[in-house]
């Protein structure tokens, strides 16, 4: 990857702050829009890498669906599953667009994750 160290360092700071603020989450990953993991806080590194590629595809489909329905640019996807949820948020960054994915158990509060997730992407955009 030809991304700067500064970008990665900044992402490390953002993801640590996010994980501390939310508390109990399964994983958080910041990846490039073309599907590479930039930084992650996960119990399983392989999962973070695969999730980065999936987040990339889902966000790209989100962009297309948003355009098709004429509702503007893509911001986030919430995926609700039996025992948890995944929140994927689009972040602009001066170097390349990024996607923040947060995986949480169903006991976690979606609103809280969304709030801190949005704060995180706002910080990434201000790099």
């Amino acid at each position: 990857m030809n991304l700067s160290d500064a970008m990665k360092t900044q992402a490390e700071g953002v993801i640590d702050e996010l994980v501390n603020a939310i508390g109990d989450i399964r994983a958080a990953v910041i990846s490039t829009e073309d599907g590479f993991e930039l930084v992650s806080r996960a119990r399983d590194d392989a999962q973070a890498s695969r999730l980065s590629a999936m987040a990339s595809s889902m966000a790209a489909l989100g962009v297309m669906a948003g355009e098709e329905c004429e509702i503007g640019g893509f911001r986030s996807i919430t995926l609700e599953a039996d025992s948890g949820f995944i929140l994927m948020l689009q972040s602009t960054h001066p170097e390349t667009n990024l996607i923040l994915s947060v995986i949480a158990d169903s006991q976690a509060l979606v609103g809280k994750v969304l709030l801190y997730g949005k704060k995180s992407v706002a910080r990434l955009a201000k790099a």
Binding site: N2, E33, G35, S56, S57, A60, M64, T96
Partner: peptide, 22 residues
Amino acid sequence: PVNTDVRNTDAAVAKPFTTVGL
């Protein structure tokens, strides 16, 4: 055509955009 191209960050692939969805 519908396409899901995004900016490529992979230095091993010499092209500006790449398909990530379909």
